[in-house]
Amino acid sequence: MSNDTLLICKACGTQFDTSDRNVLKNCRICDDPRQFIPPTGQEFTTLAEMKGNYENMMAPDQTNHDIISLWTVPKFAIGQRAFLIKTPHGNVLWDLITYLDDESIRRISEEGGIQAIVISHPHYYTTHSLWAKIFGCPVYLAAEDKEWLCREDPQGRVFVEGNEKEVVKGVTAVKVGGHFPGSLVLHWKDRLFIADSFVTVPSALYHENRLPGTASFSFMWSIPNMIPMPPQDIVNIWKALKPYKFTTTHGAFTGLDVRDSRVKTRLLESAKIAIRAMGYKESQFIEELSE
């Protein structure tokens, strides 16, 4: 069966193992309380139907041209971006967008192709079997989140079992949990690619004269439904990332890049703000944990 005819959820971009609309009535990703069904109801499309109506854009990061953002216009499904990270040891694609066409394949190939794909969590699994097949590379997914796979095709899947996995030299997937049990972030040099594992908030983007108690990140079990993570999950995110150095975070959407030598400290501050807001004003985490 052609990948072009397999059904894709219009709300989240997940591709399924059937072309039969009589068989597939619901998207199990969107039925989960972390996601939602649009008010208009569940709808599906295919790559064949998308072709000619969408295109993928690519743009280098403003401070490092070895990082290239990819996103689809007009916006499709969740609307996240992916990142092509070019390293001397191979190119890594962080997260995925659903749409893939010949022009995107050509442009990515001109950049050296893809040697590894790492996906942060099930909302961005999208068409990963197709990407892996086209570029002949493994796809790294958290073992804890296997149950959310919507295609039986095992093309290139590698399940991250431990707390971290170096996918190519110098590029490490770090398991932080929280949003999903296996939620991942990606560390490379002084960069942290965070997806939805923790969320860049508007007050993160202006750095000057920040008042005490100003958050840079939020910690959400469900982002669209605004359900926060339990305090222990927030603590676990900090514990997982404390050993790593980073001065930039790249969020899931265009414009959500925080560039600040204090960004790691701001992550810790944001974690403490969130936990205090839940009523834990005297917790050991707030009193004792520091850089």
Rank of each mutant, 00 (worst) to 15 (best):
T63W: 08
N53A: 12
M226H: 05
V176G: 06
N22D: 15
D32Y: 12
G13R: 06
R107S: 03
L267Q: 13
I223G: 03
I237T: 08
S261A: 15
F217P: 00
E282S: 11
P122W: 00
I223C: 07
Y206I: 15
I275S: 06
A274Y: 07
G113H: 02
F246V: 08
I67N: 03
S261H: 10
L96D: 05
N225Q: 14
F219Y: 12
R34A: 09
Q80I: 04
I108S: 02
W221N: 07
L241S: 02
I105Q: 10
P243M: 09
N53K: 15
P243Q: 10
R266A: 05
T126K: 12
L7D: 08
S270N: 09
D4E: 15
R262C: 10
N209L: 10
K86N: 07
L24K: 04
W71K: 01
P74F: 04
S69D: 02
V139A: 09
D20Y: 02
W131P: 02
F180Q: 08
P202R: 12
H65V: 06
E152G: 14
S290L: 05
G162H: 14
N53W: 03
L211Q: 13
G79F: 11
K175P: 03
P38R: 00
Y140H: 13
N91T: 09
A142P: 04
R157N: 13
A132H: 06
S261Y: 00
T98L: 08
D95Q: 12
A274R: 10
R107Q: 14
E269F: 04
V73S: 07
I8Q: 08
K133H: 07
N225E: 15
K189T: 07
L192H: 00
Q284F: 11
Q155C: 12
H250C: 13
P74G: 05
V235Q: 03
G178E: 06
E110W: 01
D145P: 10
Y125C: 02
E49T: 03
P243A: 10
G178N: 06
E147Q: 13
W131S: 02
I105L: 05
D145K: 03
A77Q: 07
I78Q: 02
E147K: 13
K75V: 13
E144Y: 09
G52D: 11
V158S: 01
N56V: 13
E43S: 11
S197V: 05
L241D: 03
Y124D: 11
I78V: 06
T72K: 11
S261L: 10
A116D: 09
P60A: 14
R107V: 10
L211C: 02
G41K: 05
P224G: 10
A215T: 12
I234N: 07
D20S: 01
S283E: 13
R21H: 05
V73Y: 01
E161L: 10
